[in-house]
Design a binder for these strands. Structure first.
Length: 433
DNA sequence: GCAAATGATTTATC
DNA sequence: GATAAATCATTTGC
C-alpha cells in the first residue's frame, strides 16, 4: 500500500499526459459530475485513483468486484500507461544510484581468501596455501603427512558444506524470485507494473540473498582459519624428537662443546640425519646452549656419557688417521670418513691436530670429525686421569668453556679445545660462528 | 595429577 | 639475520 499511495500522491501533483489533475489537491469525491467534458475526464481519473487507493481497505469480495470494475473502466488504458511511465522513471533513478555502488571490499576479501584456500573456485585436488604451508613445515615425516592429509580431508569437508549451502541459497533465491515475479505479474492486472520494475525487484531479492551468502562466506572463512590454526600451530603439535635424533644432536653438541655453533652446512647435515628441519636444529642448539649454560652440573653426566660413547669410535678414527698419514704422503689430508660427521665446512676440514698428550701434532692434518673425536677421546683420557665432580676445574665440560660474560668463547680467537693439558695455541675445529 | 623435560615462540640485542 | 634469554605449550615419567 505504501508504494501505491506514494505513487498516487505523486500522481495527484503531476501532469497526466498533459492534463493537470487538480494541482496538488486531494482526490475529488468519486461522484458528482461538474458538467464540462474536461472536468468529466478529470472526474473519471479521480474516480479510478480513489478506487485504487481504497481497494485494500475493503473486503476480498468487494476488492474483487472493484478490480473487475477497474479493469473494465474506459480510462484504464490511459491511466495505466502514465503510471507505468512514472514508475519506470522512479525505478531507473533508484537503480542508477544503486548500480554506481562499488563492489563490497569485504566480500572481495572473503572471495579471495576462499579462492586461495581452495574452498571456492575450481578444486585444486585439496591443495591450498595452508596445506602447502603444512607440507613445508612437516619436513616430510610420515606423521606430518598423515596430519596433512587429515587437514586436506577437513578442508574438503568445509568445501563440500560451503558448496551445498551455496547451492541451497541459490535455489531458494531463484524460487523466491520466481514466486515474486508471479505475484507481480498477477498484480499487474490491477496496478501498473513495468518489466523494469520487476527487474528492480529481482535485484533487491538478489542483494538480500547475496548478503546471506556473505554470511556463509564469513562462516566458512572462520572455519578455515580455525582449521589452519589447529593444524599449523606448531606449539600445539610439538613432538619430541626421536631418540636417535637427540643422540645425533647431543653427539655433535658435546663433541663441539667449546664452540657449539654448527655452520649452515653442519645444520643441514644434522637436519638430514635427524629427519628434522634446519630451523629445528637451530632451535635445538639454542635451547641446548642456554640450558647447558644455566645448569652445567646437571649436564655433566650427559656430557661424560656421550664422551665415553664416542671414545671408541674416536680412537679408531685417530688411529686410522695417523696410520693413513704415515703410509701416504704427509701432506695428504685424511677426511676421516669413519666418524659421525663429515662436514664440508672449509674451516673444519684441515686443522692442526694435537697429540693426545697435548702437544701439537705438527705437520699432519685431519678432518674435522676426527678432530672432534679427538676432543672427546682426550676428554675420556683426562677423565680416567682424575675426574672430580661435575663442577671441578679439571673437567672437560666444565664452565671454563664459557667466557666471563657467560657466553662461549669467541670462535675467532679460541683457546684450547677442552683439555687442561692443551697448549694455548690450539684452534678449535668449528669455525662456523 | 604433577613436576620435569623439551620443542617452539617471542623479544631484545648485537 | 643469528643468538641469548625468557616464556609458552606440550609431552613424558612418576
Amino acid at each position: 500500500m505504501d508504494d501505491q499511495s506514494r505513487m498516487l500522491q505523486t500522481l495527484a501533483g503531476v501532469n497526466l499526459a498533459g492534463h493537470s489533475v487538480q494541482g496538488g489537491m486531494a482526490l475529488p469525491p468519486p461522484h458528482g459530475h461538474e458538467g464540462a467534458d474536461g472536468d468529466g475526464r478529470k472526474q473519471d481519473i479521480g474516480d479510478i485513483l480513489h478506487q485504487i487507493m481504497t481497494i485494500t481497505d475493503q473486503s476480498l469480495d468487494e476488492a474483487q468486484a472493484k478490480k473487475h470494475a477497474l479493469n473494465c473502466h474506459r480510462m484504464k488504458p490511459a491511466l495505466f500507461s502514465v503510471l507505468c511511465e512514472i514508475k519506470e522513471k522512479t525505478g531507473l533513478s533508484i537503480r542508477g544510484a544503486q548500480e554506481e555502488d562499488p563492489p563490497d571490499p569485504q566480500l572481495m576479501r572473503l572471495d579471495n581468501m576462499l579462492l586461495a584456500e581452495g574452498v571456492s573456485g575450481p578444486e585444486k585436488g585439496g591443495g591450498s596455501a595452508a596445506a602447502a604451508a603444512a607440507a613445508a613445515a612437516s619436513g616430510g615425516s610420515s606423521d606430518n603427512s598423515i596430519e596433512h592429509s587429515d587437514y586436506r580431508a577437513k578442508l574438503t569437508q568445509i568445501r563440500q558444506i560451503y558448496h551445498t549451502e551455496l547451492e541451497k541459497y541459490e535455489q531458494a533465491c531463484n524460487e523466491f524470485t520466481t514466486h515474486v515475479m508471479n505475484l507481480l505479474r498477477e498484480q499487474s492486472r490491477t496496478r501498473p507494473i513495468s518489466p523494469k520494475e520487476i527487474e528492480r525487484m529481482v535485484g533487491i531479492i538478489h542483494r538480500k540473498f547475496s548478503s546471506i551468502q556473505m554470511q556463509l562466506k564469513q562462516s566458512t572463512c572462520e572455519a578455515v582459519m580455525i582449521l589452519r590454526s589447529r593444524f599449523l600451530d606448531a606449539r600445539r603439535k610439538r613432538r619430541n624428537f626421536s631418540k636417535q635424533a637427540t643422540e645425533i644432536l647431543n653427539e655433535y653438541f658435546y663433541s663441539h662443546l667449546s664452540n657449539p655453533y654448527p655452520s649452515e652446512e653442519a645444520k643441514e647435515e644434522l637436519a638430514k640425519k635427524c629427519s628434522i628441519t634446519v630451523s629445528q636444529v637451530s632451535n635445538w642448539f639454542g635451547n641446548k646452549r642456554i640450558r647447558y649454560k644455566k645448569n652445567i652440573g646437571k649436564f655433566q653426566e650427559e656430557a661424560n656419557l656421550y664422551a665415553a660413547k664416542t671414545a671408541v669410535t674416536a680412537a679408531h678414527a685417530v688411529a686410522a688417521a695417523v696410520q693413513n698419514n704415515q703410509t701416504n704422503s704427509p701432506t695428504t689430508p685424511n677426511s676421516g670418513s669413519s666418524g659421525s660427521f663429515n662436514l664440508p665446512n672449509s674451516g673444519d676440514m684441515f686443522m692442526n691436530m694435537q697429540s693426545l698428550n697435548g702437544d701439537s701434532y705438527q705437520g699432519s692434518q685431519v678432518g674435522a670429525n676426527v678432530q672432534s673425536q679427538v676432543d672427546t677421546l682426550r676428554h675420556v683420557i683426562n677423565q680416567t686421569g682424575g675426574y672430580n665432580d661435575g663442577l671441578g676445574g679439571n673437567s672437560l665440560y666444565s664452565p671454563h668453556n664459557l667466557n666471563a660474560n657467560g657466553g662461549w668463547q669467541d670462535a675467532t680467537t679460541p683457546s684450547s679445545v677442552t683439555s687442561p693439558t692443551e697448549g694455548p695455541g690450539s684452534v678449535h675445529s668449528d669455525t662456523s660462528n
